[in-house]
């Protein structure tokens, strides 16, 4: 059986952080697409199939909350699991993340093990 590589969308305005997350995700054998704000993320997500979205909170142009909210209204993107990653540990931010429609919340910088484990849990079923 040939396996389709899984793909994660990484949205963060800081290039360094994006590269870091990308490296962690790619170590797990996933492919990645990057975007530096919500608007770009929507474009990227629409043009290529992604299995999970890792989304920063604080970004110019369109922030993470708005991005997830918008994605959740989309017929094609709505169902994709979204994980918020933020430096802010406060509970209120977590609530906002869930209110926006996020499936999970991680603190930045995410520990390599956390990302690895999360990806294991969020691996889509193999397609025939």
């Amino acid at each position: 059986m040939t396996t389709r590589p899984f793909k994660a969308l990484i949205v963060d305005d800081a290039t360094t952080v994006r590269m870091y997350h990308r490296a962690l995700v790619e170590q797990q054998g996933w492919e990645t697409v990057e975007a530096e704000n919500g608007v770009e993320a929507l474009e990227k997500a629409l043009e290529t199939h992604v299995d999970v979205m890792f989304v920063d909170v604080n970004m110019p142009v369109m922030d993470g909350y708005t991005f997830i909210k918008t994605a959740r209204q989309s017929e094609t993107l709505g169902h994709i699991p979204a994980v918020m990653i933020s430096t802010e540990a406060q509970l209120v931010d977590q609530d906002k993340a869930f209110a926006a429609g996020a499936n999970h919340y991680l603190i930045k910088p995410a520990a390599p093990d956390d990302i690895a484990t999360l990806l294991k849990l969020l691996e889509p079923k193999e397609l025939p």
Partner: peptide
């Protein structure tokens, strides 16, 4: 949004 959130939960649970 509600329906899609539920679908995404469905995805997460299935995986």
């Amino acid at each position: 949004s509600e329906h899609k959130c539920l679908e995404s939960i469905d995805q997460v649970l299935e995986r």
